[in-house]
Nucleic acid binder design. Structure first.
Lengths: 201, 201
DNA sequence: AGACAAATGGACCTACGGGTCCGTTTTTGC
DNA sequence: GCAAAAACGGACCCGTAGGTCCATTTGTCT
């Protein structure tokens, strides 16, 4: 049953792009759309503790329909997180292309946190042992390169590690979510704080 | 005798030296000790997701015995968190007594994180909506005073808020726990990073 | 030692969430 | 319009964890 449709490792969750979705029935594709959107909303509002039935109800479909597209809850989370991760990676790639690595990192951090405002799912999934470990690796690699560039230019301390940035960045996400902070401007501000933490003495 | 001291349905979920413990049987008090210690260990190792049966087993007692002292799991968590919170508050009080507010804050942050190394329970409970809200208020008040002092002396930026410190501090705790970092020295280092984030431009 | 209350712990109940099954409905190709 | 295939979704199973009950044990007091 269900051949390549089930993204066991969180694969072709992007609608319209996956070739595996070619032969699918129209209503199936439509429902799939709604499920992803519902999952994003629900996880954003209530965190990863939100239940699959909850997502199903929000999407207006049955539990089984959700499980057909995503065999396990982790797959569903991964799909949502992956969507955001892609955006973050693009943002980091853009930062990497800039000349002044310091401001590039600073703005990237602010932009990324602003983007994550109110999105528990990715925030919690950014930690270790998440269901998107593979994709996370790419993200971390990119982040590492941006950090290295800033370090080489002396914009941040010479002993700053990617892990440090990750911890501070992820920590802010989780905490802001916990506090129910929804204002993107505030999230953005924390991006600057994180950058400040890295500045040379 | 000993009938005057709340014979049945003990109820009191907040032990810890209260007068209500006077007439208790010796073994009861001893078990209670073990339960608290076990809860601390288990929560520290596995986070708040650890189960009550797990704590009971570690303590070498039955589930019901745990529930007799702490009617609900939240009470148990609160007891453990409270213990750590007291230490943190004392540390902040000490910082408040120092002259140089900047270094005082910096060292306090480092000491506190060092103390929290590997202790998921308090880390997770430090967020909003925790079962120790009341005690947390005191903690936040104290932290606020230390921050204010540092701010007044120009050791940190003039627009730093307690919330910012709390978010960064709590964020580090949660993330470091998630990553399984156990080295107190590393935790300590993050305390310095947090302080750095607050420095004036 | 003996008796009584305090304390214990294993059996038990219940709620809930992840995940599956299968009869029914909807698309689609002819 | 019709049949086959695809998709649906409500009913169902199961494991787990919070919380309760009561027969039995154990400490304490005389």
């Amino acid at each position: 049953m269900t051949d390549e449709a089930a993204p066991t490792t969180g694969r072709g969750s992007s609608p319209g792009g996956g070739p595996g979705w070619a032969g699918r029935r129209a209503d199936a594709r439509r429902n799939h759309e709604r499920i992803v959107r519902a999952a994003f909303e629900v996880f954003a509002e209530k965190g990863l503790e939100a239940t699959v039935p909850e997502v199903a109800e929000r999407a207006g479909v049955g539990k089984a329909t959700v499980y057909r597209s995503y065999p396990t809850k982790a797959d569903l989370v991964a799909a949502v997180a992956l969507h955001q991760l892609e955006w973050l990676q693009e943002r980091l790639a853009a930062a990497l292309a800039e000349d002044d690595a310091g401001p590039a990192l600073r703005e990237a951090l602010a932009d990324m946190l602003e983007r994550l405002a109110g999105d528990c799912a990715i925030a919690e999934a950014l930690g270790a042992g998440s269901p998107v470990d593979a994709a996370l690796q790419t993200f971390v690699d990119l982040l590492g390169r941006v950090v290295a560039a800033a370090r080489d230019q002396g914009a941040i301390r010479a002993d700053v590690t990617v892990t440090e940035v990750r911890v501070l960045f992820g920590g802010c996400s989780v905490q802001l979510t916990k506090y129910g902070e929804r204002d993107p401007a505030v999230w953005r501000h924390y991006g600057e704080l994180v950058f400040n933490a890295l500045r040379p003495a």
